[in-house]
């Protein structure tokens, strides 16, 4: 089941490493000419501000909780409800998975035209962005210090 702290750590790590992975993927695809100069720069322009919002939320939480928290193991640790955990996981995993799929599909197989890909990415970001924004804010609240 896991405690709140464990779930937070898991999601925080996932967000951080998946965003890092996304940028690494873009660089690798650029080097392999799956993306040309213009496409690479345009994708960076799309992703950098959007992803910065998530990472900023995460970093703010980390800064606000820079002191080590002593956990009293004798007391039962609070945990999130299964619904909350599942919805959060579903939204965050689907978001990253769909981004990786469309970018790889374009770079490897040119499955859609460039303009269509841009619209797909913007659509994905718009759809998931607002929900994930809410979830990230609730999962990493600044007040909980």
């Amino acid at each position: 089941m896991g405690t709140e702290a464990q779930f937070r750590l898991h999601i925080g790590n996932f967000i951080f490493y998946s965003i890092l992975g996304l940028f690494v993927l873009l660089i690798v695809l650029y080097v392999m000419v799956g993306l040309d100069d213009e496409e690479f720069i345009e994708l960076l322009k799309i992703f950098t501000p959007i992803k910065a919002v998530y990472v900023t939320g995460l970093i703010k939480y980390v800064i606000a909780n820079k002191k080590e928290i002593k956990i009293d193991r004798r007391r039962k640790q609070p945990s999130f409800s299964p619904l909350y955990r599942n919805v959060t996981k579903f939204m965050i995993y689907s978001h990253i998975l769909s981004l990786f799929t469309v970018i790889l599909g374009y770079a490897l197989f040119n499955f859609v035209e460039w303009n269509v890909l841009k619209n797909l990415i913007i659509g994905i970001e718009t759809f998931f962005g607002s929900y994930i924004g809410l979830l990230v804010t609730s999962l990493f609240p600044l007040s909980e210090t």
Binding site: L29, D36, E38, E39, A107, F109, E113
Partner: peptide
Amino acid sequence: KYGSGIFIAPRKSGYKDMELNK
């Protein structure tokens, strides 16, 4: 013209003119 892609080439409209770039 040139176009990006690793395994499958882009559509005809996905190519860019070489004369206008590097």
